[in-house]
Design a binder for these strands. Sequence first.
DNA 1: GCCAACGTTGGC
DNA 2: GCCAACGTTGGC
Length: 156
Amino acid sequence: MAKNYWLMKSEPEEVSVDDAIAAPQSTVAWTGVRNYLARNYMRDLMRVDDGVLFYHSSCAEPGIVGIGRVASTPYPDPTQFEKKSKYFDPKSKKDEPRWQLVDVQVTRKIPNITLAEMRARPELADMVVLQKGNRLSITPVDAKHWKAITGRLPKG
DNA sequence: GCCAACGTTGGC
DNA sequence: GCCAACGTTGGC
């Protein structure tokens, strides 16, 4: 089965690429997704070893700051059951969890490919994340876009 | 802080 | 099932 590729947004004030790299195995559980389409991508379409573009959002310089991989099969997001969490979902049942997530492992940090830089590159113009009105925190990435982005990174 | 875009909720 | 109101995202 061919690999799929994904762009996953994280607010650096919550989980930055450095936070992820500092975590055990440089791996973090992708908690807090509360959008059904984004959930469905994780639950139904992601496979272990799919490629991940780690994106910083809601910050001074939004952009792609790391490369990673899907590091687990889907499982229930624990924060949906934590009453003190801002991601608590009172409608979710333990025996029928509403929100699923995957683990993401960051394999390397890269110099920020900013949103402005992405928009300036014609070969990236039809990336889902760049489309007008897109707000999804997880979007699929075409293999051609993955190659265009990862194919011209500095060594390291 | 503003606001465009879009998802969710709830009354009917 | 419709749709107005409301909430959230996220760039600027």
